[in-house]
């Protein structure tokens, strides 16, 4: 699903060059749950923006769904992103002027799905994530956990194949954090590929593979045999 070959990302600010990703090689298959960990400044977020087609690498190749995407136009990347990738952020990134329902509906609008079908899809995902009662609330009227659930709903409402999550539990207390992890795991079990950046080894243990970054290099890849799962919880 995702393959990176010799990927480099260099930022230039005036005379200063900073290598954010150095020579990364990575392969993520459909249905995997991958956690990316590493200290601050190790390049986790940069890697996620490249995987999410929000930024292009300076060098190297990136195959997304077997298509080389590192040199695609902004418009083409937007198309690919819209259909295939859902994002979940540490700070939720919901639009404050729209209700929970309207926030979730947003990707469907951009996909051009008809109104009645949109309604069905949004209601289905809200139901699945148990936020139906909050449909008319604005983000600032919701708790952190509820906001993140809305964000997750938005990420999967269009049946996206990959979820890219950047510290999805970072702003949540442990109970809410657990709940969000549980959601991601359940989605993964249903077939969605999940790539999650996290600091926490505890949350990383939900993944079936952990990729460690240090100063822009992939230093270690561990396959977790004893992965936690939703069935285990229940």
């Amino acid at each position: 699903m995702i393959r990176l070959y010799n990927l480099r990302k260099i930022y230039r600010t005036g005379q200063v060059e900073t290598t954010a990703i150095a020579n990364a090689n990575l392969r993520i298959d459909p249905g995997e749950f991958v956690a990316i960990t590493g200290p601050s400044g190790s390049g986790k977020t940069t890697l996620l923006t490249i995987l999410g087609l929000l930024d292009s690498p300076t060098e190297g190749q990136y195959y997304f769904l077997d298509e080389e995407v590192s040199k695609l136009t902004e418009k083409r990347r937007a198309d690919l992103r819209r259909r295939n990738i859902g994002f979940v952020f540490q700070n939720f990134n919901l639009i404050n002027q729209l209700t929970a329902y309207e926030n979730i509906e947003l990707p469907l609008l951009h996909m051009g799905i008809a109104s009645s079908q949109r309604k069905d899809m949004v209601m289905a995902v809200m139901d699945k994530l148990r936020i139906t009662t909050r449909r008319n609330h604005y983000p600032q009227q919701l708790s952190g956990g509820q906001q993140q659930r809305v964000a997750v709903a938005r990420a999967v409402v269009g049946n996206q194949r990959v979820i890219l999550a950047d510290e999805p539990t970072g702003n949540l207390d442990s109970r809410n954090g657990e709940e969000v992890m549980e959601l991601l795991a359940r989605l993964n079990e249903d077939g969605t590929t999940v790539v999650m950046v996290t600091h926490s080894t505890e949350y990383a243990s939900w993944a079936n593979r952990v990729v460690q970054l240090f100063d822009g290099h992939v230093t270690n890849e561990n396959i977790l045999e004893g992965k936690r799962s939703v069935s285990e919880l229940s």
């Binding site: 994002f87 990134n93 639009i95 990707p107 938005r154």
Partner: peptide
């Protein structure tokens, strides 16, 4: 800016 970022992320064209 945040609104712009989110809309772009969700596939809005420039």
């Amino acid at each position: 800016a945040r609104e712009v970022g989110i809309r772009k992320l969700l596939g809005s064209y420039h």
